[in-house]
Design a protein around this nucleic acid. Structure first.
Lengths: 192, 192
DNA sequence: ATATCCTTGGAACGTTCGGTCCACGAGGGG
DNA sequence: CCCCTCGTGGACCGAACGTTCCAAGGATAT
């Protein structure tokens, strides 16, 4: 049962590209290699992808955009500070666990993007960081958390993002459990 | 006053390569580009570097090896559990701050290594993680820290390693201060 | 002056790069 | 049966890739 339709085919190619880019790097993966893996000749391949950089952009953009949408939704829900942080962490780790290849490509290779594509992705990434800062500030305002340096948010994101490198979907912990473990350690340390 | 001697020249070229690899990626940086940046022709360049992959190996190896040596030294010193963790964190962040380009290359591009070089770097990296686990276990045995999942060490290292992406040497915080900020948040959360 | 060695620039190698182009086949509506 | 569109494989493009090679320059020791 082959999938049909332009969009479905495009998505399929981009998924394959994510695996290849994750394994061999963006510059380290050739268009010929991608064509072979997708079972497509040059003509068909370019019909779907437009350009190699467009593929990298699609891979990167989709993940960050989806996390931004999720964060915006949570921030609208008027949750308690601790619950908000836990849900944001769980959402991120669930996404990373489901799209390890895409996140690996995004973290390692987004610098290979140029022009507006680069700007868009970097901006989206900063926006996401802003949502985390907002969530932490919520906690401080509600006197649930103590005042901490603004750079702590970088540390938290590092802790969570880094999972793309080691998380094993078949391991003993679910993404939610990993998120909770990290937040258990952190929240006690920054409670008011 | 130009530096002389084979080793000094080699080190100079590798330093320049680290900057280029960090900015444009390993596969994204050409030998021609490196030659131009170093002010060397092809012949002279290869006289010093041997091969492109050898450059990547040198950059990666040096940082990890130096952190392993530092960790081994600290573990020999019989420090208190908290002091040990703080010193390890400070040492790592100091090193990252001083060699941002090298760490960026290491984190993003070590997968481009092949064969024994790849194995050596991966092994060294796992060894370093083992030292951190040891330090945490010390704390648990001394009843300074509570028992935590073994995967927490991945989170701590993520927190610290991630600094290569954002730490600004001219910013308001020294590497030691960043390390302390992170550990202040963490240690309270995992104390016994 | 001669011999030896380290260092050097640049030509050249075959391969692969990302991307373009075009002819053609299949499918559907008139 | 013709025409148009869409999808496709593969020839082909110039440029860049990492590496090798060699002749010669420069320094030092004899």
């Amino acid at each position: 049962m082959t999938v049909t339709g332009f969009e479905a085919n495009r998505a399929r190619v981009i998924g394959i590209a994510a695996e290849l880019f994750a394994r061999n790097g963006y510059h380290g993966t050739g268009i010929a290699e991608l064509g072979t893996a997708a079972g497509l000749g040059r003509g068909a391949l370019y019909h779907y992808i437009g350009s190699k950089e467009a593929v990298l952009y699609s891979i990167s953009k989709e993940q960050v955009d989806s996390m931004n949408a999720y964060a915006e939704q949570l921030l609208d829900e008027d949750l308690g500070a601790e619950e908000l942080l836990r849900r944001m962490a769980r959402g991120l780790l669930r996404n990373i666990a489901e799209h390890r290849a895409e996140w690996a490509v995004f973290f390692r290779e987004y610098t290979a993007l140029t022009g507006e594509w680069r700007d868009h992705v970097i901006t989206a990434r900063e926006r996401y960081e802003g949502y985390w800062r907002q969530a932490l500030d919520n906690g401080v305002r509600a006197k649930v958390l103590r005042q901490t340096p603004r750079l702590l948010v970088k540390g938290i994101l590092g802790m969570l993002n880094y999972t793309y490198l080691w998380y094993e979907p078949d391991g003993e912990l679910t993404p939610d459990e990993v998120a909770d473990m990290f937040l258990d350690a952190l929240i006690e340390g920054i409670r008011a």
